[in-house]
């Protein structure tokens, strides 16, 4: 008797979640299907879910007339640069985890304190500083301000504190230099946290929008999201084209996320609660 009410409840919860899940996924589904419809089908007053007439014309249009190839290249450059930042964060996290040095605690608290500063306060001064350094409208100006981050340093430090000191000492006795020790011993051990941070870094770099928008005056430096917002402004009525642009931005991230979701979601559990 108890067994059957339990199964009954499981089914109800499953149905509630399925309905909610469909609602949450609806914008994605709608976006992908619409991107394969011709413009005439989009603007008909009776919408269809599946494209009646399947077309790749919108995607072709993005690359042939809208410069999306260039935007894609810029976005990939930004992603690659942000991995350099990830490396710098790991280095700093390692130093805070495994070395004793003067001013260590004070510097670490200073880094943590930068997390409290709202982006709106630093936005304008950072622009003025970059302007003074003649870095506005350059790739360096887009990349540098967000290159390192306190939260990432904090997570690396948390993880690397758990590396046994004996292991590091043994490598030192074998004559490894400090930098080699970091590259060949510490980084390989830190694979789990590197995986989580790497995926999050990729997503953040791929999605970067506001800073490229502020810094880049030149179309040559636009990222995919800036290009997409341009598309929204200029071709406001052409939803087929806009949906193709969005699909092109979103689908790679969704695929990467689904492949690595276990790392990200479990990473939260590991790093968040310790």
């Amino acid at each position: 008797m108890k067994e059957s009410t339990d199964r009954y409840q499981q089914w109800i919860v499953g149905i509630i979640l399925t309905v909610a899940g469909i609602l949450v996924a609806l914008p994605f589904i709608w976006m992908v299907f619409s991107s394969f419809k011709p413009e005439s089908e989009i603007s008909s007053l009776v919408p269809t879910l599946f494209p009646k007439q399947f077309t790749l014309e919108n995607f072709q249009n993005l690359f042939e007339n809208m410069n999306f190839g260039l935007y894609l290249k810029n976005t990939i450059i930004i992603v690659l640069c942000s991995f350099v930042g990830l490396f710098l964060n790991a280095m700093a996290g390692y130093a805070f985890a495994k070395y004793q040095f003067k001013g260590k605690d004070k510097l670490f608290y200073l880094i943590l304190a930068t997390m409290m500063i709202p982006g709106q306060v630093t936005m304008i001064p950072v622009y003025l500083i970059l302007n003074k350094m003649h870095l506005t409208n350059t790739m360096a100006g887009i990349v540098l301000p967000g290159l390192v981050g306190a939260f990432s340093i904090f997570l690396f430090r948390q993880f690397m504190t758990t590396i046994p000191d004996e292991l590091l000492e043994a490598a030192r006795l074998d004559g490894a230099s400090e930098l080699r020790l970091f590259m060949q011993v510490v980084l390989p051990i830190s694979r789990p946290i590197l995986a989580v941070q790497g995926i999050l870094t990729f997503i953040a770099g791929w999605n970067s929008f506001l800073w490229p928008l502020i810094i880049a005056n030149d179309e040559n430096l636009y990222t995919l999201s800036v290009g997409l917002s341009l598309l929204k402004g200029q071709y406001g009525g052409n939803y087929a084209l806009q949906m193709a642009g969005s699909t092109f931005m979103v689908v790679p991230i969704v695929i990467i996320f689904i492949i690595f979701q276990k790392h990200i979601i479990d990473g939260y559990t590991i790093s968040g609660m310790k």
Binding site: P27, S225, V226, L228, L231, S246, I253, F257
Partner: peptide, 22 residues
């Protein structure tokens, strides 16, 4: 379901805005 509910938070805000405007 964890994956489905988490997906919107990793999606680019401009793409989100474009789709929701539609």
């Amino acid at each position: 379901f964890r994956v489905i509910f988490y997906m919107p938070s990793i999606t680019n805000v401009v793409a989100v805005a474009v789709v929701w405007s539609y």
